[in-house]
C-alpha cells in the first residue's frame, strides 16, 4: 500500500516548466528526504502533490476528497505563520481538526496533543501565546501541530531550518520514530549531513526533473553533488553512523 504515488507528474507555473515527468511512490515506514538546490522545485512538488497548485499527471492524494486528504497527509508549509496570540496548546490542537466533528476536542484529541507537545519538547510552553515564542520555538510548535494530525504521511517543507542543533536532531528523530510506527515522512531539507544520517531514502531534484531516488549512500555520489549542487563533500560510514560534510564550491 503506498501513502503517496506520483506518476508522470509535471508542474508549470506561469508558462514556465518547474518540474517534468516526476514519478515515485512512498510506502509505509519510510523517512524520505527531498533534496535539491534553491529553485529545484521541492516546495512546488509537495504543494502540487497536495493540490495546492495546479499540476499535470497523477498524484494519489488528489483522488481523495478534501476531508479524506486531511486525514491521509499532514502538511507543514515553509512559511511559519501564526496569525493570532493563541496558546501553543491550541496551535497543536488545530492539527486534530480533521478528526473532530465540531469544535470540542475529545479525550483522545487531548492525548495526541500531549504526545506531540512532549515529543517536540514543548511541555513548558503549553499555555504561552504562540506569537511570543522565538522563531525556532514557533517552528517546533508547528511541527507538533503536524504530528498531532496523526496521519499516515507527514509532509514538511524545511521543518528544521532555523532550529538549534539539539532540536534539529531531535526533530529528525521524531520523524524517524514515526516511521517505526509504520508512518512515513516526506521532508525537504538543505542540511545534507542530517539527511544522510536520518533519512531512509533521498529524492534529489535538479534541472527541473528527478535526478536520483534511493538510499542516501547511493544518491549522494560525488558526480551528482558536483553536477546538481556544484559542491564537493566528504562522506564516510563510521562507527557513529554515516558522517557527511560538504567541503568546497566547484563552480
Amino acid at each position: 500500500m503506498s501513502l503517496l504515488a506520483l506518476s508522470g507528474f509535471s508542474i508549470g507555473l506561469q508558462g514556465r516548466s518547474v518540474l517534468r515527468d516526476v514519478s515515485f511512490s512512498i510506502g509505509p515506514g519510510e523517512f524520505v528526504g527531498l533534496i535539491g538546490p534553491n529553485g529545484a522545485g521541492k516546495t512546488s512538488l509537495m504543494r502540487a502533490a497536495l493540490g495546492l497548485i495546479p499540476s499535470q499527471g497523477t498524484s494519489s492524494l488528489l483522488q481523495l476528497s478534501e476531508a479524506a486528504r486531511a486525514r491521509a497527509v499532514a502538511w507543514m508549509p515553509q512559511a511559519r505563520e501564526i496569525a493570532w496570540p493563541v496558546t501553543v496548546e491550541m496551535v497543536v490542537m488545530l492539527g486534530r481538526m480533521p478528526h473532530m466533528a465540531g469544535l470540542t476536542p475529545s479525550e483522545a484529541d487531548h492525548e495526541k496533543v500531549g504526545e506531540a507537545l512532549q515529543r517536540m519538547d514543548l511541555d513548558g510552553f503549553r499555555h504561552r501565546p504562540a506569537t511570543q515564542l522565538s522563531g525556532g520555538e514557533q517552528a517546533r510548535a508547528l511541527i507538533a501541530r503536524a504530528l498531532a494530525q496523526d496521519t499516515p504521511l507527514l509532509m514538511a517543507d524545511e521543518p528544521i531550518a532555523g532550529l538549534d542543533p539539539a532540536h534539529q536532531i531531535s526533530t529528525m528523530q521524531a520523524f524517524a520514530a514515526q516511521t517505526a510506527e509504520g508512518k512515513s515522512a516526506l521532508v525537504s531539507l538543505h542540511d545534507l549531513g542530517l539527511a544522510a544520517r536520518h533519512c531512509t531514502r533521498l529524492i534529489m531534484l535538479g534541472d527541473g526533473r528527478l535526478v536520483a531516488d534511493g538510499p542516501p549512500t547511493e544518491v549522494l555520489t560525488p558526480e551528482r553533488l558536483a553536477h546538481v549542487f556544484g559542491i564537493t563533500a566528504w562522506f564516510r560510514e563510521t562507527e557513529d553512523g554515516p558522517v557527511y560534510q560538504p567541503l568546497e564550491v566547484i563552480r
Partner: peptide, 18 residues
C-alpha cells in the same frame, strides 16, 4: 468558525487541513 481557526496557520495549512 472552524475555517477561521484553521486559517490562523495560513491559507496553505488551512487548505491541507480540509
Amino acid at each position: 468558525g472552524r475555517g477561521l481557526d484553521a486559517l490562523t496557520l495560513g491559507e496553505d495549512a488551512a487548505q491541507a487541513m480540509g
